[in-house]
Computed example of a mutant assay.
Amino acid sequence: MSVRILALVGSLRAGSTNRQLAEAAAKHAPEGAEIQIYEGLGDVPFYNEDIDVEGSVPAAATALRDAANEADAIVLFSPEYNGTMSGVLKNAIDWLSRPYGAGALRGKPVAVIGTAFGQYGGVWAHDDARKSAGIAGGAVIEEAKLSIPGSLTRFAEVHPADDAEVVGQLTEVLTRVAKEAAAAKA
Rank of each mutant, 00 (worst) to 15 (best):
G122L: 10
A68T: 12
Y120Q: 07
F46K: 00
V123N: 07
R106S: 10
I51R: 11
E39D: 15
D50L: 02
K90S: 07
A60K: 08
V88K: 08
E34C: 06
L76A: 04
I74T: 01
A144L: 06
G137Y: 01
I74V: 15
L146A: 01
R130Y: 09
S86A: 06
D52S: 13
G114D: 00
G137E: 03
A63P: 10
G15T: 10
E39F: 02
G121K: 00
D94I: 02
F155G: 09
P30K: 09
T153C: 08
A25H: 08
I113T: 13
A136N: 12
D52V: 15
S132L: 15
R154N: 07
A61W: 06
D128Y: 15
G83Q: 05
G15A: 11
G118P: 05
P45N: 11
D43V: 08
L12Q: 00
V44K: 05
A139W: 04
P30Q: 14
G83R: 01
A111W: 06
A102P: 05
I135L: 15
E142P: 03
P109L: 00
S86I: 02
G103V: 05
A71P: 00
M85Q: 06
D52N: 05
R154F: 03
R106A: 09
D50N: 14
S56Q: 15
D66T: 15
A68Q: 04
N48D: 15
A67E: 08
G103A: 14
D43N: 15
P30V: 02
